[in-house]
Amino acid sequence: MKRILPLLFFLFSFLGFSQNEEEPTIEGEITAKVINAQTSFPMESVHVINLNKVVGTITNQEGKFTIPAAVNDTLYLSFLGFKSQKVRVTNDMFKFEGTEIALTELAYALEEVIVRPYQLTGYLEIDVKNLPINNSYQYSISGLPTSYEAGSKNPSAVTKVLGAILNPADLLRNLFGKKPKQLRKLRQMKEDEDIRNLLASKFDRETLTELLQLEKMDIDDILSNCNYSKSFISTANDLQILDAISSCYEEYKVLNRR
């Protein structure tokens, strides 16, 4: 019995050590190929961005790209006329060659959307139950002619409405303060030529929201409270919006130090 106990202790210690030993994170460069999901043809000039490292590249004539990455990084792929896609980097992408990523044309992606018209019966009690409910919050302020709809996300929307009217500085502090890591990416984004080229060709704020982890509504709030006009906000391309946010953020940091 005395001999068995030390042996069991050794086995349990070895198993515990094996479980605690974690596989090291793989990091380096990965190579993959982007294809058209409908035709399987390679896609050239697809923009690929590593959202974690804030670096970008584009695919060559064979649809291939190489980009710095680590396991669990997220790649964001974008091409005009195709549905943008996010892909998480896995160990297999480093271990095996021939990784293919398929993008779907928007025409095919839209076919998957089912539009359900309202089925009205003519009976008020039944039709009222079938109509969608608007969960947006409406706020009215004394002295102002119209009410404000603050969105349907959560009750904190009232903070943004009141903050924008009563104290713009507080709204900026809330927006910038909640996303310090994402906003530190601004300088990296401006320095990467591939990312700048992509943003210069886009007007939908989609890439910006993914990179900064801000919502489109937050971007509009930031620009509005930095005294940018509605015309600029609605017509500027994403690169101009990035420069505007960056300029506003620098001014905020100066004011915040004071």
Rank of each mutant, 00 (worst) to 15 (best):
R173V: 01
Y252E: 06
N154F: 00
F94K: 03
I67C: 06
L7C: 04
S156M: 11
P145D: 10
D73A: 04
L75N: 01
C226P: 00
T99W: 03
F14G: 07
I233W: 04
E97R: 12
L172T: 05
A70S: 15
V158N: 01
L186N: 10
I35E: 04
D221F: 12
T31A: 09
S201I: 03
R205K: 15
Y123E: 15
G16D: 03
D220S: 08
I30P: 00
T235W: 08
K230H: 06
L242V: 14
E193Q: 15
I222G: 02
V34P: 02
K160V: 03
K86W: 01
I195D: 11
L242H: 14
H47G: 01
V87G: 02
S18Q: 12
P145E: 10
K83M: 10
K95E: 08
V115W: 09
Q38S: 15
P168N: 05
A107K: 15
I141K: 04
S13T: 14
T209M: 11
T104Y: 05
I219L: 15
N227S: 09
Y123N: 13
L199K: 11
F232R: 08
M1C: 02
D170P: 00
T104R: 04
D238E: 13
Q38G: 01
Q119I: 12
I58G: 02
Q213C: 00
K53N: 09
Q188E: 15
I219M: 06
K230V: 07
S231D: 14
E100W: 00
Y108H: 03
A102T: 00
N72P: 00
F65C: 08
L124V: 13
I26F: 05
Y228V: 07
T146M: 10
R187G: 06
I49N: 05
D73G: 03
L211G: 06
L5W: 05
K53Q: 14
A70W: 00
I58N: 07
G63Q: 02
Y148V: 08
G56I: 09
R258W: 06
S45C: 00
M217Q: 09
L223E: 02
R187C: 03
E210V: 02
I30G: 02
S224T: 12
N60P: 00
T121E: 14
F65I: 07
T209D: 05
V55L: 07
S224W: 00
P180S: 09
S234T: 13
V54Q: 09
F176C: 06
K153H: 04
E29R: 11
N72A: 11
F41N: 14
N256L: 13
S136V: 04
I30L: 08
V158A: 09
Y139S: 03
T57K: 06
M1L: 05
D243I: 11
N130Y: 07
N134H: 06
G177H: 04
Y228N: 07
N174M: 12
S136Y: 06
K129D: 10
